[in-house]
Simulated assay, not measured.
Amino acid sequence: MSTDVQVAAPDNTMQSAARAMADIDAGFLPVAQDDRLIGIVTDRDIAIRGVAAGRPPETSIREVMSEEVRYCFAVEDSDTVLDNMSDIQVRRLPVVDREKKLVGIVSITDLASDGDGRRAGKALGDIARPSAQHSQAV
Rank of each mutant, 00 (worst) to 15 (best):
F28S: 02
D83Q: 14
A112N: 06
P57C: 05
I38F: 01
D45A: 12
D116T: 01
T59Y: 11
P57D: 02
T42N: 11
Q133C: 02
S60D: 06
V75M: 07
R62N: 15
D45G: 12
A128I: 09
G27N: 05
M65I: 09
G125K: 05
I48Y: 09
L29G: 04
G125D: 09
V41Y: 04
A9F: 00
R91Y: 03
T13G: 04
V95D: 13
K101W: 14
A22C: 07
M21K: 05
K100F: 15
I127S: 05
G39L: 07
Q33Y: 08
R91P: 01
E58N: 12
V51N: 05
V138C: 15
G54K: 13
Q136L: 14
R44V: 02
D4H: 13
R44E: 08
A18T: 03
Q6H: 12
V90R: 06
E68Q: 15
G115T: 00
R49Y: 08
Q33C: 02
A22Y: 11
A52G: 05
A47R: 13
P130A: 11
I88L: 15
E67C: 11
D34F: 10
G104E: 04
D34L: 10
V75S: 11
I127D: 02
V5H: 11
E76M: 09
G115S: 05
A47F: 13
D4S: 14
D97S: 00
D83R: 14
A9H: 09
T42L: 14
R92T: 01
H134G: 14
P94L: 06
R129L: 00
T109Y: 01
V90F: 08
K101Q: 11
Q89T: 02
V41D: 01
I46G: 05
A8F: 02
S16D: 03
S131E: 08
M21F: 09
L111I: 03
D34P: 13
D97L: 04
G121Q: 06
N12M: 08
D34I: 10
G125T: 06
D126R: 15
T42Y: 06
V64E: 09
V51C: 07
T3M: 13
I108F: 09
P130K: 13
L93A: 01
F73Y: 10
